[in-house]
Design a protein around this nucleic acid. Structure first.
Lengths: 193, 193
DNA sequence: ACCATAAACTAACGTTTGTTAGTTTTTATA
DNA sequence: TATAAAAACTAACAAACGTTAGTTTATGGT
């Protein structure tokens, strides 16, 4: 019984799929494309994976699970709200740098999920957004944050960090730490002097 | 000769295509889907449009042309840099509200462009980004803006406004003016107190 | 060495894809 | 009302799609 090879190959398939989905989209990527990247025939992929849809599901829920558990952790920590939000922003940026392709898929290709999975993913996202929004709201109520519209603040933050993955290339001018620091400055202190 | 109907139908096709591309992606939308939405057979669409690719091109370049000319206008106006940037942000938000589907396509599906068109689109985008970045840089040099990393500032702004289109629904809590004002507050003054 | 299983292969399936050809209907004008 | 162009239609195409079936090769434990 050689089971160890199987999970490694499955992992490799998921990783290559994430890269392809990111650059060509889920619908624009064929199983033959994926096979070519992994180094096997399209049909052989089915030894490791149930379907093309299952690949997408694995990628999307891996990311949403990560976000949800990061949020839960921050919620339980006893720190000022401003610090909680700073931590969440940092975690977003880091996940983006570490799992860029998967995050991109979860952000852009989740719409190709179907049935229960689509519902579950949307629910997870809503749960995350509500939790994050609650922290901002409490931060404003506590006087730690500006009394800006909560939804606008939430989505400005989520949007601003989300695109790191699209344009940031490490080693080219800005280091990861500088990136974090600059984004935090922008979001927390603003561009104006 | 009935020429008036033709351009109207073409416009309708482009608009419905933008909506479909936004929700299902370019590769995930078939000409039969589009025909269904417009109210004709897929084959009939070709009386108004050269190909599926041409539809995508029309949408993408309509948006990029708009951005480019808005930037040119702002560059020529004699106002403080902070105000120029504020204007550009406002224009982004407004275009997003007026042409949400098309903007979404230009943001997400441009990667399905091919050959010259792909090159031209990327060039236009780069030109816009460079122009915007230059304004930020000059604003910092003039002491009107915080000395933040220019790329980070630029992409934080572009990202933050870009997603308005994904989550903002007019008439639901936040008005368009409030939206503009809140985003400007976030980006220029920051969330922290 | 043998055997069971995992994991690759080839070949093919039914469907859907973008697009073309040829034909009929609609429409505006003279 | 006759006519010509515009714009719809039906039918079909070759290619590409996700997936299945059946077969062969590789691998690890006894």
């Amino acid at each position: 019984m050689a089971k160890r090879g199987k999970i490694n190959q499955r992992q490799r398939i998921l990783e290559e799929a994430a890269k392809l989905f990111k650059s060509k989209g889920f619908a624009g990527t064929s199983m033959r494309d994926l096979g070519g990247e992994v180094g096997m025939e399209a049909a052989s992929i089915y030894n490791h994976v149930k379907s093309k849809d299952e690949i997408l599901e694995s990628i999307c829920f891996y990311i949403s699970d990560t976000y949800i558990s990061q949020l839960a952790e921050v919620e339980q920590t006893a720190t000022p709200y401003r610090e909680k939000i700073e931590t969440l922003i940092r975690q977003h940026i880091r996940l983006m740098l570490e799992e860029g392709a998967a995050v991109s898929v979860a952000n852009n290709d989740w719409k190709y999920l179907t049935g229960d999975k689509l519902t579950a993913f949307k629910d997870a996202r809503k749960r995350y957004e509500h939790g994050f929004a609650a922290l901002i709201e409490q931060g404003i109520a506590a006087g730690e944050l500006q009394p800006v519209n909560v939804s606008v603040a939430l989505f400005t933050i989520l949007s601003a960090v989300r695109w790191v993955e699209l344009w940031y290339r490490p080693g080219r001018g800005v280091s990861a730490d500088e990136l974090e620091q600059n984004i935090l400055t922008m979001l927390l202190n603003g561009l104006a002097k």
